[in-house]
Design a protein around this nucleic acid. Structure first.
Lengths: 165, 165
DNA sequence: TTTAATTCGGATAAAAAACATCCGAATATG
DNA sequence: CATATTCGGATGTTTTTTATCCGAATTAAA
């Protein structure tokens, strides 16, 4: 049971996009530099966010990414699903149907108790992440930041965010 | 986010061990044959259950596996943890500490909001599986079995379970 | 209109993990 | 002692994850 590194990166990338001044954007290279992660790989992950409609991509010169909606309307599950895909973590192999005493297909219309339990556990996981918005993550992070760091970020942003016309 | 096939195999293997007659055991080969899965690999997974104390292994001729405790006291999480290990699915890379505006280590004693949220979601997943006992899985499975199938299993068991002295 | 910067999508490659097998040593039975 | 079995480790194979690169489309600005 594992979650890829891309999820963590993209969540943090979104928190940075969230505090972007009006009409500014950040490209993949700038985001990668900010977090010190491999630029090409982060760029790939950002494509997933774009395809899922969580961010808006502006192509061409002085392009970059912006969030597509308010941070209250983006949950950690939205980002996780966009990056990891929606396939269930428990992949039932239906081994109850195999072997010398295997069940017949018509007895297996519904998932077995094992699979059903894992699906329910997954739903609990998912629902918890659905309840956490980007907004709450940002509030939490801001509370642990020293005032001078906020300034650092603003300076970096001014220097690295591209301007949209 | 994925769960290995060994978890499903081991849960089903345990349900079979649970209905073993008194003083009988099943070895890895018999279990693998019953479910039609690779014998050597299932044997490897069963070792994990043994190490975790969920099953008792009897070595030597006419050896095999038995459950170590009542099915009410074995949860799906017990089995999952034994097979997959206890490492968290979200592995925080602490990227907040990297890059040009990275946080200082002393500001990072506690996990960031992102990591904390994922840990909490994982706890919800875990707690759900903790609430599902092997006993309830067996009750559920029995309800969907035709009466003649119960007979099939009993016959197979008689032929394949080894006798402990 | 040209040039430069950018995202996008796909191809590719390297590294890691999962999946699977095998074998020798220890152990228990008869 | 001979046989059957688990155990633990070593090893190999396949799949997934991680990561890079490149060409095409797109856009802003020179």
């Amino acid at each position: 049971m594992k979650i890829g590194a891309g999820v963590e990166w993209c969540v943090h990338a979104c928190t940075l996009l969230a505090v972007l001044p009006a009409n500014r954007a950040l490209n993949a290279e700038a985001l990668a530099e900010y977090f010190d992660v491999p630029p090409a790989y982060l760029a790939k992950q950002m494509q997933a966010l774009s395809k899922a409609g969580l961010v808006i991509s502006h192509r061409g010169s002085s392009g970059g990414y912006q969030l597509s909606r308010p941070t209250e309307e983006i949950s950690l599950w939205d980002i996780t699903e966009a990056v990891e895909g929606a396939k269930p973590s428990f992949r039932c192999q239906e081994i109850r149907q195999g072997g010398p005493c295997g069940a017949r297909p018509e007895e297996c219309r519904r998932p077995c108790g094992v699979a059903a339990s894992f699906y329910a556990a997954e739903a609990a996981f998912r629902d918890h992440l659905r309840g956490v918005s980007l907004a709450s993550i940002i509030v939490d992070a801001a509370s642990s930041y020293a005032p001078d760091r906020q300034e650092d970020v603003a300076v970096w942003m001014e220097a690295n965010a591209s301007r949209l016309s």
